[in-house]
């Protein structure tokens, strides 16, 4: 390599180095292990109450029960909107009558009005 080019390369290398994030850690992986794990499914049963069957058959495919158990008391209108969101936005195939029962169940379990 001609001298001038070599100097230019060196300057460019320095300039690039200055823009670079901190030096790479020596421990950065050079290969990857395949992964095979089991995840807990969630075995808590929903508290009994009117509408629990509709809740169990429609909601537990996607959620374990803690999703509801950890919610604060919320107005019925908020529960109504949540159930509607599951149907409209997330394509949950909930029949009208089941949706009503689920809202009743949630409003009784975690209602604030």
């Amino acid at each position: 390599m001609p001298m001038r080019t070599a100097v230019l390369v060196a300057v460019l290398t320095l300039a690039t180095a200055a823009m670079r994030p901190p030096a790479l850690a020596a421990d950065a992986p050079r290969s990857f292990r395949s992964v095979d794990i089991d995840l807990p499914f969630g075995d808590l049963a929903p508290p009994p109450g009117p509408g629990v069957e509709a809740f169990t058959s429609n909601c537990l495919a996607c959620h374990s029960v803690e999703m509801v158990l950890t919610q604060p008391p919320l107005p019925r209108a908020v529960w109504q909107a949540e159930v509607q969101k599951m149907r409209a936005a997330f394509a949950a195939p909930i029949a009208d009558d089941d949706a009503k029962q689920i809202v009743d169940y949630l409003a009784q379990l975690k209602g604030s009005d």
Partner: peptide
Amino acid sequence: GGTRPVTTTYPTKGKMLLQRTRPP
């Protein structure tokens, strides 16, 4: 209503506060 169990059952995870089991 802020009580959460401490869980150690998730692979590759140590002590964590369980908000929901599934999805995790």
